[in-house]
Amino acid sequence: MTLGFYPGCSLKGSSREYAESVLAVAKAFDITIEEIKDWNCCGATAAHNMNRELSFALPARILSLAEKQGLTEVVVPCAACYSRLTVTQYELAKDKELKDRISEVNGMEYKGSVTILNIIQMLDKYITPKLEGKVVKPFDHKVACYYGCLLVRPHEILKFDREEDPQSMDEVMLKAGATPIDWAFKTECCGAGLSISRTPSVGKLSGMIVGDAKDRGAEAIIVACPMCHSNLDMRRKEINKYLGEKVDIPVLYITQALGLAVGLDRKELGLNRHFVKVTV
């Protein structure tokens, strides 16, 4: 079967390993991934603060391209891209005038016929049902599943999981042989884009997340968002400074952890690209 794929900027740059692991896992389960041709920026995070029309035009163009390419389902692994695309689809479905205007701006008809899947929805639909018998190296670790902000919010638009206490990643990891821990920072802010402008703030916010995971005995933090990953992984120096100790719990994308469980190669999953060494 074929699944559309929108990587967005991160998966081509700082989180190449996320893309690599998504493709590797898809391949292992006989899913053909077809990237949307000529895709553009989703607009996160600047566009929707500056120009409402632009913030819908950008994702709408991506979705129109997918429609033109004949894709019915598109997996969007980046949580920010997923949010922008889904919000656009929601707003345009509500407002015919806006939809027509956006089609005109893009010079491209937008129908709204594509189903957008975040990475968990993709795993739930196509991978975990076939997981039984394929887990050759159970990911036998205590894991803290970190959802961040955009994967589950706002609930009225995404209609995905419970916004205050999400469970979907925990369930996937349970099936991969892990022991998800009950912890308090599942959806707390990692500092997001302040990573560059106010790095110490990210050190504190991400530090509280990593600190709680550590205190509750997590051996790995599992994420599904490039932004979360870069803050928890790349900013570990600032995190450790905030915590006042050296914490070396690795941060894995959920597809990396799942890939390990089904016996994929570590390099194929991009595990060599992390700042905090992946020892699990």
């Binding site: 912890w183 308090a184 920072f185 707390e188 709680d212 205190d215």
Partner: peptide, 11 residues
């Protein structure tokens, strides 16, 4: 915004 348990205390 949130209540969680840490070291026997409710934060």
């Amino acid at each position: 915004s949130r209540i969680y348990e840490k070291n026997g205390k409710l934060i």
